[in-house]
């Protein structure tokens, strides 16, 4: 997160905004201190229900979209690690972003509408329904109804077994946490089955 703050300050462009949405059912208690520690001055949202991931059909967290002055998306659904990361991360994304903010439509990293729409995941009925079930589970959890929460989170998992987000968010309730043995097992299965954990980043596209 300090990377984005650094870019935001460096660009210092009144016509560039960053909207950072924490996809975290733990809410302000969990993500607030992280936002604060980074001294973030851009727009910060505690998005307990993963609404941003949902409306943009993002595959995973972290992910990003670039939206131009006319409201058109010019890049979407890419993992945004600014430094080398285990799961296909990169250190080319941040410079590409800066290039776009400075050069706008002239930037080589701007994609046309055809490429963007091709890169937007389409969701099946069941995958959409999984979002509704996940949201219902969160609501129960916020009200202390843990059995019901678990029931609807499980339903979300059944409806969309490939969702990394539901699985890992659910694991945050377990003793092992979201990056323990169960998570590593899931990653191994993903690799064996050739599934994407993030949509591959292709800046030449």
């Amino acid at each position: 997160m300090p990377v984005w703050q650094h870019i935001y300050e460096e660009l210092n462009d009144p016509n560039f905004v960053i909207i950072s949405a924490a996809q975290d059912t733990g809410g302000e208690a969990v993500v607030g201190p992280i936002f604060d520690a980074a001294n973030t001055t851009y727009i910060q949202i505690v998005d307990t229900n993963h609404t941003i991931s949902s409306v943009f059909n993002f595959l995973n967290v972290p992910c990003a979209a670039w939206v131009d002055e006319t409201g058109k998306i010019v890049r979407i659904d890419e993992g945004t690690y600014a430094k080398v990361h285990h799961f296909g991360g990169n250190d080319v994304y941040a410079p590409a972003l800066i290039d776009w903010v400075k050069n706008g439509t002239q930037s080589e990293f701007v994609q046309n509408a055809d490429t963007v729409t091709k890169n937007i995941r389409s969701l099946s009925f069941d995958e959409l329904k999984a979002e509704a079930a996940f949201r219902l589970g969160n609501f129960f959890r916020e009200h202390g109804y843990n059995e019901e929460a678990e029931q609807y989170w499980q339903q979300a998992r059944s409806l969309n077994p490939d969702s990394v987000n539901y699985y890992r968010q659910n694991l945050t309730l377990s003793e092992e946490g979201s990056a323990g043995e169960s998570f590593r097992k899931m990653m191994t299965t993903y690799a064996e089955e050739g599934k994407d954990y993030y949509r591959p980043l292709n800046l030449e596209e």
């Binding site: 462009d13 560039f16 909207i19 941003i52 943009f56 972290p62 939206v67 968010q169 979201s178």
Partner: peptide, 29 residues
Amino acid sequence: FELTDRQGKVVRMSDFKGKKALIITWSSW
């Protein structure tokens, strides 16, 4: 979309017409 930011201000995508926006997600988990 319509969400409330940490300062209690309503944030809508449509508020940012005329500006470039980076929409970014992250999580603690």
